[in-house]
């Protein structure tokens, strides 16, 4: 609660700067139009004009909010002009990739923790794999998978998966190794099998790490899905809205798609946060 006032202040300052920047960036166009019509713009007229252009360089916040309202609430959800529809297209790919990535990451982490050779051979490559800008080859993955007859949701999910498995591997390896030597010895004195050791000790102790990784993985997964939509030729999804907006100079559309993406990211990460709190409380791990 202590943070509310400072956060609101910072947000207010950002909005104020945004309005000022809108005037500054859009003014040349407004002056240009006025000069063509042989008019002189007063200061007040200039401000009003810069905040209400059709294709501004930087749309004012209220223009973006209006566009968001029109494309989410006033359009039916199934319409192709509805932002909810596009957000759902992106979200479904995100969730599919997130699920696949988490499963893959989890499996790799278990292998790395339990099999020494995998630890020494796979782990360096997992790290190296992330220095490859996979987003850069997203178009190729999409086109190639299309060529072998896989299209629609799955290619985007593959990119999301690639981006989201890494945080899960790193977090889970750390988490599964977090029990102390003393706790592991205790399990051994109880004659626990390695399966029991995994289920009763390692898995529960890895939960805080798992949730921290899941948040990062979800954010990365959304980025993957958005970029994955770029090369499909702007059919559907938030990435397609971005691309179409940039082709036709529809800045308001770009910004509203961006805000929608931000809302989706915030909602998903928030959801994981709630899950985390509930789970950790039931396990008695929250402080």
């Amino acid at each position: 609660m202590r943070a509310v006032v400072p956060v609101l202040t910072v947000v207010a300052v950002i909005v104020a700067i945004w309005y000022a920047a809108a005037v500054w960036l859009n003014a040349p166009w407004a002056r240009d139009m006025a000069a063509r019509q042989d008019r002189e713009l007063g200061a007040a007229e200039l401000v009003v004009d810069t905040w209400s252009q059709d294709k501004p360089k930087l749309p004012a916040p209220h223009q973006v909010v209006t566009e968001l309202w029109e494309t989410t609430v006033e359009k039916s959800v199934t319409s192709k002009r509805s932002l909810v529809y596009h957000a759902w297209v992106t979200l479904s790919a995100t969730l599919a990739g997130f699920g696949l990535g988490t499963a893959l990451g989890f499996a790799l982490a278990v292998g790395i923790v339990y099999i020494r050779v995998m630890d020494m051979s796979v782990m360096p490559w997992v790290i190296a794999s992330q220095t490859i800008p996979i987003l850069a080859i997203a178009p190729m993955i999409i086109v190639v998978l299309n060529a072998v007859g896989v299209s629609g949701l799955l290619p985007k999910a593959v990119i999301s998966m690639y981006l989201s498995f890494f945080p899960v591997v790193v977090g889970m390896v750390k988490g599964l190794r977090s029990p102390s030597a003393m706790q592991l010895d205790q399990m051994r004195t109880w004659n626990a099998t390695s399966a029991q050791e995994f289920v009763k000790l390692r898995l529960p102790s890895s939960m805080p790490y798992l949730f921290a990784s899941l948040k990062i993985a979800m954010a990365a997964s959304l980025v993957g899905a958005i970029v994955g939509e770029l090369p499909t030729g702007a059919v559907a999804g938030l990435g397609a809205r971005l691309l179409a907006g940039s082709y036709y100079g529809q800045t308001i559309q770009i910004w509203s798609a961006l805000f929608m993406a931000a809302a989706v990211a915030a909602a998903m990460v928030g959801l994981i946060g709630v899950l985390q709190r509930v789970t950790l409380r039931r396990m008695g791990l929250d402080r």
Partner: peptide, 12 residues
Amino acid sequence: ALPIIGIAPILV
């Protein structure tokens, strides 16, 4: 945590 890459078209 946001998909910042989305501002690429605007900055271009």
